[in-house]
Computed example of a mutant assay.
Amino acid sequence: MNQSRLTLKTIAIWQPYFMGGGAEAVSLWILEALAPYYDITLFTLQSIDLERLDILYNTHLSQQTITVKPLLPSLLNSESTRFLIANSRTVRSGLIHWSVRVFKELTRDYDLVLSTYNGLDMGRQGLQYLHWVYVVEPNPKKMRRWGAILMKISDFSLENLQKNVTLANSEYTAKRVKEAYGIESRVVYPPVVTEIDAIPWEQKDDAFLCSGRIVEPKQPHQVIEILQKVRDRGFDVKLHITGGGGGAYQQSYERRIKKIAAQNSDWIQVYQDLPYKDYLKVLARCRYGLHHKPEPFGISVAEMLKAGMIPFVRNKGGQVEILGNQHQELLYHRQPDAVEKIIAVLENREKQESLLESLKQRQALFSVEQFMKEIQLAVGDYFKESD
């Protein structure tokens, strides 16, 4: 550490792994927000490639002064261990709880402990960003023997979790946090890409985007079925599916989606693990978005909004906050409802123009700049209160 950094407050950040997805984008952008102002140490299970993550998420972490501390011994810093973490829930949860115990032991002298991976007992009061509830620890109402073992491994205290200052990714999640833990949350919407080329509506493709990991919980098969019904009604729309895979346990589903796409290659195209800049090009080209899974927030839906699309989403979950309750014509319940609402927009140019103008007003709510500013404020407020 150079002399000028010796005076900085120290922050220990816990994010056990990076396997792709919106939650990890949050962690990386928290690092981006704090690294210039604090002495940051990131604790993970295995070493990470910051340059590769910069390419995927458009961060600049490899150019920052950040200490990355892998918790597993170097012997276990291997692809086989990475495979087990990604594909074995038992191994993953066991290592997560072991890492919690080690994290608490190693971070007693830091000025702040911060979990970017949901609610956590960090041994003392810290700051936690919640994407959802009962992610690290099991739901006490449903705890089984393995859950009790995990809690002993990490020496996990629910009371310590409740003492933390809590950030939540949406009002929807904040309500769930209140129900689960009895604590209040400060809502900080996740970072959403802003560097999207503005392509005029007339020059965009008459295409839908389905974005997110290609795994069954994200339900891209439902998106395909909905748009097939739309096409059957005479609308020649295309579909671009973007996202990473879900590990070995999801390979059969991934193969299923790719097979359907290959059989319908005249209108479906799948892109996997695109670099950030290439993903933005796909975002910019599409007129519409379609996201079937109710989400705690739904970062891909916010990206669609920022790209000037008209997104259609389920009528429950955090993604409703992104579009706003006033856009009922874009919120659907099930497949038949989705088909009718999509067709009502596709066949009405005036409705498209009205929606585009209305949705544009919501874009400023979501950006990396706004996210970083709010994270810096939250950390600054924490230190003011603790001084």
Rank of each mutant, 00 (worst) to 15 (best):
G126H: 00
H60S: 15
E350N: 14
D197V: 12
T194L: 08
G243D: 08
G324W: 03
P275L: 01
K142P: 09
E105P: 06
A86W: 03
S157Q: 07
Q251R: 15
D54W: 04
Q64G: 09
Y279S: 09
P190S: 00
M122G: 02
L356M: 04
G318S: 05
S354V: 12
D109I: 06
F103I: 03
R362T: 04
Y57T: 04
A261T: 08
L274G: 02
Q363T: 14
V91Y: 04
K141I: 11
D54G: 09
L359R: 05
P294Y: 00
I214N: 06
I268E: 03
R256K: 15
F297Q: 00
L161M: 07
P73S: 13
Q228G: 06
F103G: 00
G308L: 06
R362K: 14
V165L: 12
I149E: 00
L290V: 06
I310Q: 00
T107D: 07
K152M: 13
E347T: 06
R144D: 14
S78V: 08
P191E: 03
A23I: 13
P275H: 02
W201V: 08
V320Y: 02
G119R: 10
Q222L: 15
E225H: 14
L239S: 02
I149K: 02
K238T: 02
P138R: 03
K373R: 15
S354M: 14
G20Q: 01
E195M: 11
K351H: 08
W201R: 10
Y37L: 15
G119M: 14
R233G: 05
I226Y: 05
K384D: 04
P36T: 09
K277Y: 06
G147Q: 01
G182D: 08
R213N: 10
R92K: 11
H221T: 09
I96A: 07
H327K: 05
Q222K: 14
E202T: 13
L127H: 02
G94W: 06
N139E: 10
T173K: 04
L84T: 08
K163C: 06
V100T: 01
V320S: 10
A180Q: 08
Y172H: 13
R349L: 14
Y271E: 07
A148N: 09
E347N: 05
G289A: 05
Y382N: 08
L359H: 01
I183H: 01
I153G: 02
E179F: 04
R89I: 14
V188Q: 00
R186Q: 07
T59Y: 07
E184L: 15
